[in-house]
């Protein structure tokens, strides 16, 4: 049974990533994966899609929605 004097490590986390940072981090690995696995990988469309989402997330951040 837990005693009052027992040491308890509090629940705490490092500051969570912003959605935009997490997304960019994911796309870096995803780009690498696609480059290594897909022969007809369309880099231009991939980059355009990443830019599009990043811009939207940045706007949402500026509007305080993210």
């Amino acid at each position: 049974m837990l005693q009052p004097n027992d040491e308890i490590k509090p629940l705490s986390l490092e500051r969570p990533q912003r959605a935009r940072d997490a997304f960019i981090e994911y796309t870096i690995t995803e780009r690498q994966r696609k480059q290594d696995s897909e022969t007809n990988f369309n880099q231009a469309i991939f980059d355009a899609a990443v830019n599009l989402v990043e811009r939207k997330l940045r706007c949402m951040e500026e509007e305080g929605q993210a």
């Binding site: 959605a19 997490a22 997304f23 994911y26 796309t27 995803e30 369309n42 469309i45 991939f46 355009a48 899609a49 990443v50 599009l52 989402v53």
Partner: peptide
């Protein structure tokens, strides 16, 4: 058509990122 391809790719990436974040 190009824009649609970009949007589909963006949606795929977002789904992947969401799965990635959910997993984390």
């Amino acid at each position: 058509q190009e824009r649609i391809q970009v949007l589909i790719q963006a949606e795929e990436l977002l789904q992947g990122a969401m799965r990635h974040l959910s997993h984390k």
